[in-house]
Simulated assay, not measured.
Amino acid sequence: MTVTTQAKILIVEDEIKLANVLAKYFEQMGYQVELIHHGAQVMGYFSSNHVDLIILDLGLPGQDGLSLCKAIRAQSEVPIMMTTARVEEIDRLLGLELGADDYICKPYSPREVCARAKAVLRRVQPSTNNETSHHWHLNENQLSVSFAQVEVQLTAVEFGLLATMVAKPNRIFSRDSLMHAAYSDDRIVSHRTIDSHIKKLRKKLEQLPTSENKLHSVYGVGYKYGI
C-alpha cells in the first residue's frame, strides 16, 4: 500500500516520455506530482501553486532552465534539482552558483533521482525528533569541529573547506569553488591540492565518534556534505 507523503514535486521536462516515467516513480513513493513540458509555463504555475521540490531540465523550449532557476531563486528557497544531457554543463552550472540543490546528468536512473529527491526533501523538511546530536559543530574561533563532546583541530584551509560545504548540505561544490573558499589570497592551486586537503580532512573527521561519512565525492565534479 502506498502512503502519501503530501510533498508535491514539480517536474519540468520537455521529454514527455521521460517525464511520465519519472512521475510514476514518484507517485509510487506517495508524492504528488505536477508535470510541465514548456519553460514559458513554469513561472506562471509557480507563482500561484505551492510545490516542495522542483526537478528542472536545463534545455527547455520557451525559457531555459538557467534563467528559470535564477527567477525562482529570486523569490523562493524551494529545493531545485537541475538535470542536463550534457556532462560538460555540470561544471558551468556549478561555476554560476545558481542556487540549485543538486545536479543530475542524463541518462539517469529514475530510482536514483527519486532517492536524491527524497534526501533533499528530508534535509529541508526535517523530522520533528530532536536530532541535533547527529550534526557536527564547527567552531571558527578555534578552527575545530566537534561531535558528541569530541573535538578535532583543523587547519585554516581544512576548516574553510568544511564550513563551505556544511553551510549548504547536499549542494555539490566544484573544486574551483572550493579553492576560492579555502584560499582568500586568490593563489593558484591545482585540483589535486584540493583533493589532498579533502583526504586529510576526512582522516581527521574519522576521529569523531560517528560511523557516518558525510563528505562525499561526486565523480568528475567535486565534493558535497551530505546529511
Rank of each mutant, 00 (worst) to 15 (best):
R111P: 03
L68A: 01
S133A: 13
L53P: 13
A119N: 15
A163G: 12
V78T: 01
T155Y: 07
V33R: 04
K106W: 01
S184Q: 10
N139L: 11
A7K: 08
Y25H: 14
F46Q: 02
T210V: 09
R116E: 10
V152F: 05
Y219E: 08
C114A: 13
M82R: 07
S217L: 06
I104C: 06
K24F: 12
L35W: 10
N141D: 15
G30I: 06
E34R: 10
D176Q: 13
T132V: 12
K204E: 08
R73C: 01
G99D: 15
I104D: 08
H37K: 11
H197K: 03
T155R: 04
G220K: 00
L205T: 05
I90G: 02
V21Y: 03
Y25C: 06
K203A: 14
Y223M: 02
H38V: 10
K70D: 07
G30C: 04
I16Y: 06
I9N: 00
G226D: 14
A40T: 05
M81N: 04
Y225E: 01
E140K: 15
S109E: 10
H38P: 00
F159L: 09
V12T: 08
T83F: 09
Q153P: 10
L56C: 07
E158W: 13
S48M: 03
A156L: 12
P126N: 05
E112K: 08
L205M: 10
Q28F: 11
V124K: 04
S67F: 08
H137E: 14
P169L: 10
P209A: 05
T155V: 11
D176W: 05
A23T: 03
Y25A: 11
I104A: 01
C69A: 04
I172A: 01
R92W: 07
K70T: 14
A19W: 12
V113A: 05
G44V: 08
M29H: 09
M82A: 04
D64F: 00
K8C: 14
E13V: 06
R202H: 03
E151I: 13
W136L: 12
A167Y: 01
V120A: 14
L53G: 08
Q207K: 04
S144R: 01
S196K: 10
A71Q: 07
P169F: 14
N129Q: 13
L10N: 03
F147K: 07
I198L: 00
L66G: 13
E88L: 12
L208P: 07
E88H: 14
R202P: 07
C69M: 00
E27V: 04
S76G: 02
R187T: 04
C114D: 08
Q153I: 07
M165S: 07
P61F: 09
T4Q: 08
S184M: 09
V78E: 04
R192A: 02
